[in-house]
Design a protein around this nucleic acid. Structure first.
Lengths: 248, 248
DNA sequence: CGATTGCCTTGATCAGGATCAAATGAAAGG
DNA sequence: CCTTTCATTTGATCCTGATCAAGGCAATCG
């Protein structure tokens, strides 16, 4: 089961320019009008910080384009990524003013923001939004739990294979898991970010990437350009059940 | 920051016999009456399975007493606990019929159940419940992310210290972190369950428990009876920030 | 009462990743 | 063009926690 790919499926608004519609269960109606009025955009460039853990955070937002990551850091510098936000994902929680982790733009990033207070009020009066948000949060919780299995029990090789599967599946169009041809995509993460995602060191990530390459499971043309010739064969290395997960 | 303890705080109904009030933002009103009519209880004894991953699950429930655990298992038997449910915690998700992980009674357990369909309908008409559920889910997500940091980056010793801190803090009454005296409590988990929680083997758990004992951070009188003479000293071993976390 | 079972401890050894260190390569800038 | 910088690779070594294997200790049961 993928960590993030599935989240997009139910409400993905495709080319719709108003990606924040993802927060609304229906892409029209009066609540959308209210959201329209409230929204404003913020852009960040790759590497830039959005908020620090402990900062006051007076807005909630959804990702329009690019990738953001949530990370937790220990005093001595050990770091663990705890969330990877793709377009249409949501950050920030109603009812909490202090950010519990760092939010960073991993690639160039555009977010669609709403000030928290009015957003909360709107939520109170429009049950659709609260319900949609609940759904999204439950999906994220499931993803987090899958991730916990990865962190706690998988080998380095399985971790890498899992991450690559997730990214490959996402790039191929979500449910087209029947896609039999080769899949190619650009890695949006550095080796270090991959390491933070997987609970490894960057050296181990590098070594295992090359091991997968040696074994013919992926091709690495340009360090960040990945080709997966046979998705199922890669998926076999993840340690996950073969079926690929199920929902609803 | 504790993983589970904090979840109880905002809505803990104390001695209230109707613990499932935790799902309702207000412990009265018409929605409670509806919940009252719908509820039914189920009991399990320690070790008994509640649902298997992949099973159809036609109910949602909240824990009345005892402890339940959520675990994920790989084909080869590697297991990772991904949730520990304490009284007033909620299981099951509206809109999903298939259980994504095993639910097991860790101790004797009583759950207050609601059939899923009517519960969902009720949720649609009573925004309070949806909102309360959203809050609880967000708390659980935060807990899961803290847990990810533990699994991905902490040493065995830090992991054990973290778990014991969580349990100690819970038993002492949640926010009474100023409790300066010794704290004592019964471990609700076997060494193996602790290992599954922490992403370790039971041998390592055993060794590190005894290491903490040797270092005077905990006393082990009866294998399952823990005394923490100085909570702050234990908390220093967790690798977490000293302050103990913050909310809202 | 001895035998069984479940849970925990302890010891010896091994190995998967971490760590430390250096080299490579590519892109950006002066 | 040379230098700098950043991401990545590669190598050598170390160490934490896993693995394999006994043994201890209560509680339960025949």
């Amino acid at each position: 089961m993928s960590l993030h790919a599935l989240k997009l499926a139910p409400q993905d608004c495709g080319d719709c320019p108003i990606r924040h519609r993802a927060v609304c269960a229906r892409c029209d109606g009066p609540e959308l009008a209210k959201l329209e009025e409230m929204k404003y955009y913020r852009s960040f460039e790759a590497g830039q910080n959005v908020v620090w853990s402990g900062d006051r955070m007076d807005f909630v937002a959804s990702v329009v384009s690019g990738i953001a990551s949530l990370t937790q850091t220990m005093e001595d510098g050990r770091r663990q990524m705890v969330g990877l936000l793709l377009p249409s994902d949501f950050v920030g929680r109603p009812g909490r003013t202090i950010a519990p982790y760092d939010v960073t733009a991993t690639t160039d990033l555009v977010m669609c923001c709403f000030r928290r207070k009015p957003f909360e009020e709107m939520m109170g009066s429009t049950p659709h939004v609260a319900q949609r948000l609940l759904e999204m949060t439950l999906d994220e919780l499931d993803a987090a739990r899958e991730w916990m299995l990865l962190l706690g029990r998988k080998t380095a090789r399985e971790k890498i294979a899992s991450l690559l599967s997730i990214l490959a599946r996402r790039d191929v169009g979500l449910k087209a898991k029947a896609a039999k041809g080769p899949i190619s995509f650009d890695l949006p993460l550095t080796r270090e970010e991959m390491a933070d995602y997987l609970g490894l060191t960057l050296e181990t990530v590098s070594r295992q990437m090359n091991a997968l390459k040696r074994d013919g499971l992926v091709e690495l043309e340009e360090k960040r350009r990945i080709v997966v010739p046979n998705f199922d064969r890669l998926a076999n290395e993840t340690g996950d059940d073969s079926d690929g997960g199920f929902l609803s």
